[in-house]
């Protein structure tokens, strides 16, 4: 949700190339109806987007987002920024690699202290199917790098957005887990 009750969303399909779109929904005047405005149309790969709302509330001129896609097809984090002509431009911040990185980012991003937190559908090695939590930080040279905060065991399936506490702890949810019941969990991570 942006300023003045404007809602932002994304579609995995549709648009002129069928690769997905980003849109805004403008709230109605009293008694009216909501109106949709197309902000950006993806091309090439099909993009499954989840919008990062926390940063957008503070910075109205930039819309951060991520999806599958990117140069390696393993997911990417990018910004969408409107120009004076109203045309939105996509700028890639970080493309996940097919090897070495945790891949397929699939939760809304959380922006804190110039870092970007999110979850990915994959972990690594024995935890490959469990998903992971990552943070992207900007280096002095301007490039963004990925740090893995946690790899989940089993098929944890991290779901939804993360919550970053003021003290730095991270809260999140999973839909399933590695135990005998396969139960998901609400978790807290105390960063070292």
């Amino acid at each position: 949700m942006g300023a003045n009750g404007v809602l932002y969303g994304a579609t995995a399909y549709g648009g002129s190339s069928g690769a997905g779109t980003v849109f805004e929904l403008l709230p109605p005047a009293a008694g009216g109806t909501w109106s949709a405005v197309l902000l950006y149309t993806f091309t090439g790969r099909r993009w499954s987007c989840t919008l990062a709302t926390s940063g957008y509330r503070k910075r109205r001129d930039s819309l951060r987002d991520y999806s599958g896609g990117g140069s390696a097809g393993a997911g990417t984090v990018f910004t969408l920024t409107p120009g004076q002509d109203g045309i939105w431009t996509k700028t890639a911040l970080y493309d996940f690699a097919k090897t070495g990185d945790r891949k397929i980012p699939d939760s809304p991003l959380v922006l804190r202290s110039n870092a970007i937190y999110g979850t990915a559908a994959t972990g690594t090695g024995a935890h490959n199917a469990g998903g992971s939590i990552f943070v992207l930080r900007k280096t002095a040279g301007g490039a963004w790098t990925e740090t893995v905060l946690h790899d989940f065991a089993g098929a944890a399936g991290p779901s939804g957005s993360l919550v970053i506490e003021k003290g730095g702890a991270i809260y999140g949810a999973t839909t399933s887990g590695p135990g005998p019941t396969g139960s998901g969990m609400v978790y807290k991570i105390a960063l070292q």
Binding site: L149, S159, S183, V186, A190, Q192
Partner: peptide
């Protein structure tokens, strides 16, 4: 990092 399981009795979708 230390992970604490706060609650686990089904599927949790959001927080």
């Amino acid at each position: 990092n230390t992970v604490y399981n706060i609650q686990a009795s089904g599927s949790y979708w959001a927080i």
